[in-house]
């Protein structure tokens, strides 16, 4: 169980997050949506321990993540909006490096890297330098990195941004596979795509989670309409 309680964050003159709380169960894929500047990326960065919140707690299975950041980060997979990778490395070399950095024992690295390559459909590009890959392929590499060691929590920031239709479907499939062993939190603006595979949509508005809309029992169109209404400030 991944619990986020009362997270608040503000820059010197502007409050971005006031009181953000939510819970994500194992195997759940939660999408975080909101307007530009609503604080989605800030929240993801706080969850990834890249920023320090003013208040609030993050717990993984009851353990305080901020009190034991190294242990927490070893259970975490994180992907930025714009994938920043080592362009001189090959896909396989990069994933191997990341696995080593995350402390995976050498004897298991090969299997982990092979699994990530297979899930993210990178077999054709495994030995190519990253600089020769397209933007979409780089995103897939970053996604492979995020889910490399089957982390307990995967944080994906604006995962669909800049991807074409085909790539989005591929990303959706990958995320569905990742959700088999992780709690996935995704941010984005592409509501019609996100509702296809999200188990829940969280709407971030005014520095708080203004709506939590589960997909269970809802048709696709109905789900989209509810989320859109929540974004406009309607349904809770």
């Amino acid at each position: 169980m991944y619990e986020v309680r009362n997270i608040a964050f503000s820059y010197s003159d502007r409050s971005v997050l006031k009181d953000v709380s939510f819970v994500v169960s194992p195997g759940e894929t939660v999408s975080l949506v909101g307007d530009n500047g609503a604080g989605k990326t800030t929240l993801i960065k706080i969850l990834a321990t890249l920023m320090t919140p003013e208040s609030g707690t993050i717990r993984v299975d009851g353990q305080d993540a901020l009190a034991h950041p190294i242990r927490y980060r070893s259970q975490l997979g994180y992907m930025q909006e714009n994938p920043a990778l080592y362009e001189d490395m090959t896909v396989k070399g990069y994933l191997r490096y990341r696995a080593q950095l995350k402390g995976e024992p050498d004897k298991r690295i090969r299997r982990r890297v092979g699994e990530a390559i297979e899930i993210c459909k990178l077999a054709d590009t495994r030995d190519r330098p990253i600089r020769h890959l397209s933007f979409g392929q780089k995103k897939r590499v970053a996604l492979a990195d995020a889910m490399l060691l089957r982390p307990r929590v995967v944080l994906l920031d604006d995962v669909l941004a800049g991807l074409d239709c085909g790539m989005r479907e591929a990303a959706a499939e990958i995320i569905s596979n990742v959700a088999a062993f992780s709690s996935v939190i995704v941010t984005g603006h592409e509501i019609t795509d996100l509702v296809k595979w999200s188990t829940r949509i969280l709407v971030l508005r005014g520095g708080v989670i203004s709506a939590s809309i589960p997909s269970a029992g809802l048709q696709h169109g109905e789900f989209v309409a509810k989320v859109s209404a929540a974004l406009r400030g309607g349904a809770k």
Partner: peptide, 14 residues
């Protein structure tokens, strides 16, 4: 400059 710093800081390394 490239933003890789976030990936490094999100890794379980001091």
């Amino acid at each position: 400059k490239t933003g890789r710093i976030d990936l490094l800081l999100a890794a379980p390394v001091r």
